[in-house]
Design a protein around this nucleic acid. Structure first.
Length: 644
DNA sequence: AAGCTCTGCTTTTTT
DNA sequence: AGCAGAGCTT
């Protein structure tokens, strides 16, 4: 791989900590990979290089590219998400981190726990914050390393009494986690950071195992992650890459001061810039530059296209989302027929939900596609059902799994499940708990058999999964009307389990990475259109990009209206979306801008002073090729035939 | 008393 | 797709 002089200089700048400010498409990944390759060539041992990314996608891509560039010499480089790295390290020395016998839980499990606590605080029929809202607040405070009461006082509009009870919910959530040995995603970072902070010996051991730490997407790191990077700096050299204009995870506590204040926090650090864009043609970048110019913040960024001129981005208006979706599907088919492979097309959506019309159009027109981001296909209910049985068969203390498994049975609801669990929990181990269950349960005798099968066969993950599917089949078939389709997902899961030595390892890997959708699709076919959320799209590119529903209510998202920081983040989300396109950028919208629409979310167009209710409001004509809406193919007005 | 089924509501972004 | 609530069934 060839680097330009700036990239080269960055990759080879050794002897001090480095921050690289890299605009969209300027070869950020190439540079970080180039850096790793340079270190390996200069004799650094692979296992002394740590490569931290923010998303699993980025981690996978980095590893693949590094292997392609360096070959087997890259084996042993430690690469993964922050969460992954923390868990891995803590699993190696469980005692030092107090991690013996802990189960990692995903967001669904978290929500379930919060729901239980919430039910106790909420009066019947009363308006009370949703479990997800409470969990978001808990998580945000945690990731920004701020006490929850202070965070709520500042950022929520809940009244005093509600706030008091939300704090009780949070307290209970914590207690329940502790009692059951559950660790949520935030705990992974928090536990790791706090032990590194409090135990100099542990810190020295962890930090001392690396010479170089490479951090991707630095603008997305949150204060907790900063503490981790900061601890590693004690004996390793940092190489951080980021772009403040692409910071889109503030909702998760990301703090781009980690980029802005880098030089002050890390004395003697070199700050380098990459500004030449290699991805897109100039008109696409002109549009992106215009978008940033409209901000009240100063991003100090002007993307220059190394590739030079090209076609103007297009803007298409439609009557409704169905017409829009169908037009895109047809356009994709035409491009495909003209010889462009499906994989060269990417459709970028603000939310998973906003793409529902598009998904049905793609299905209807037989366009092969995969969805990246949003709620994963594999977090589906039937997968959770299966995994709940597996988890129940490994520990009688896993309350969430047991309740889910038990309520699959006809005649068992929340109440009976909870009561049954009260008898299981005090038992010393699982076999005895199962005996108790068999003795106490008057109904279907098979209830205890499923977990028992798992327990007995637990040394062979793939076989356990296969047996568990067979065991659950009658129950699930009754429950879901499209069982045949769902069964295929489960079979895939059993196949993936083959790769893991133990069931807990499989479950933990799954919790952190609920089946790489990439893997799932690779098992099927390669050439397909990518439908992707703007957040997930960061770091990707495609020759042809559609920006779906680039309309008021979505850019900025209605929920962000009224908060200047959030509105500003929406600008960056749109910026990320636009700068994915290499040759062709097509923006589509599906509402008539003339007729004022009231958007859900309450705020109804009330944007913050200095912000904007619609980011493409004053789009200059010369930057875009505006096209009138094509006739509505679904127009079902009666055709009046004149008689003579 | 507990579970089941129907209906209406509500959907940001991710580890 | 999943939740909450109402009303019905076991």
């Amino acid at each position: 791989m060839r680097l330009n002089p700036q990239q080269q200089a960055a990759a080879e700048c050794t002897g001090q900590h480095v921050l690289v400010l890299a605009g969209a498409g300027t070869g950020k990944t190439a540079t970080i990979i180039g850096r790793a390759a340079h270190l390996l060539r200069s004799g650094i041992q692979p296992r002394r290089i740590l490569l931290l990314t923010f998303t699993r996608r980025a981690a996978r891509e980095m590893v693949a590219r590094l292997e392609r560039d360096v070959g087997a010499g890259s084996r042993g480089v430690v690469a993964g998400t922050f969460h992954h790295f923390c868990l891995l390290t803590m699993r190696r020395q469980p005692k030092a981190f107090g991690l013996v016998d802990a189960t990692v839980i995903d967001r669904d499990d978290q929500l379930q726990l919060v729901r239980l606590a919430r039910a106790e605080q909420r009066a019947k029929g009363e308006q009370f914050p949703q479990a997800s809202a409470i969990l978001n607040a808990i998580s945000y405070a945690r990731n920004t390393n701020a006490p929850l009461p202070r965070y709520l006082a500042k950022h929520s509009d809940w009244d005093e009494d509600t706030t008091r009870r939300v704090l009780l919910v949070a307290q209970q959530y914590r207690d329940r986690k502790r009692q059951r040995g559950y660790l949520d995603f935030d705990d992974l970072l928090h536990r790791f950071a706090s032990v590194l902070h409090k135990e100099p010996a542990v810190r020295a051991r962890v930090a001392g195992s690396f010479d170089h730490v490479l951090v991707d997407e630095m603008q997305d790191t949150n204060p907790l992650q900063w503490l981790i990077v900061d601890a590693l700096r004690a004996s390793a050299t940092l190489f951080c890459v980021g772009d403040d204009a692409q910071s889109v995870y503030a909702f998760r506590g990301a703090d781009f001061r980690n980029v802005h204040a880098f030089a002050e926090r890390v004395p003697g650090a070199a700050v380098l810039k990459l500004e030449e864009n290699y991805r897109s043609t100039q008109p696409i970048l002109d549009l992106a530059n215009w978008l940033l110019d409209g901000s009240s913040l100063e991003y100090g960024k002007r993307l220059r296209a190394h590739r030079g001129p090209g076609a103007l981005p297009r803007l298409m208006d439609f009557d409704d989302e169905w017409a829009e979706a169908d037009w895109i599907a047809v356009d994709l088919i035409e491009r495909h027929e003209r010889g462009t492979p499906w994989r060269d097309h990417m459709i970028i959506t603000r939310t998973a939900w906003a793409a529902r019309a598009l998904e049905s159009a793609l299905v209807e027109r037989d366009v092969p596609y995969r969805f990246v981001g949003g709620t994963q296909l594999f977090q589906a209910a039937h997968v959770k059902d299966l995994l709940s049985l597996v988890r129940a068969g490994l520990s009688h203390r896993d309350e969430l799994a047991w309740v889910r498994y038990l309520t699959l049975w006809p005649g068992i609801g929340d109440v009976r499940a909870a009561r049954t669990l009260d008898t299981l929990l005090p038992q010393p181990d699982l076999p005895q708990a199962l005996d108790t269950l068999r003795a106490a349960w008057k109904g279907d005798a098979r209830v205890h058999e499923g977990p028992r099968q798992v327990w007995l066969g637990r040394s062979q993950p793939a076989q356990v999964l296969t047996d568990a599917i067979r065991f659950l089949e009658p129950l699930l078939e009754r429950r879901y009307d499209n069982w045949k389709d769902r069964k295929r997902d489960l079979a895939l899961l059993a196949k993936l389990a083959q790769r893991h030595r133990s069931l807990p390892a499989f479950l933990e890997a799954y919790a952190l990475d609920p089946i790489s959708s990439s893997e799932a699709s690779r098992l099927e076919q390669d050439d397909m259109v990518t439908l992707i959320t703007a957040h997930s799209a960061k770091g990707t590119e495609a020759p042809v990009c559609y920006l779906l529903r680039a309309e008021p209510g979505l850019y900025p998202h209605a929920r962000s209206l009224g908060d200047l920081d959030q509105e500003e983040e929406e600008r960056r989300v749109l910026y990320v979306g636009m700068t994915r396109a290499m040759d062709t950028l097509i923006l589509t919208r599906s509402c008539r801008l003339g007729g004022h629409r009231v958007f859900w979310g309450g705020a109804a167009g009330q944007h913050a002073p200095g912000g904007s209710a619609y980011l493409l409001e004053d789009l200059p004509d010369e930057l875009i090729d505006s096209q009138p809406a094509p006739p509505d193919p679904w127009d079902d007005d009666e055709i009046i035939v004149p008689f003579g």
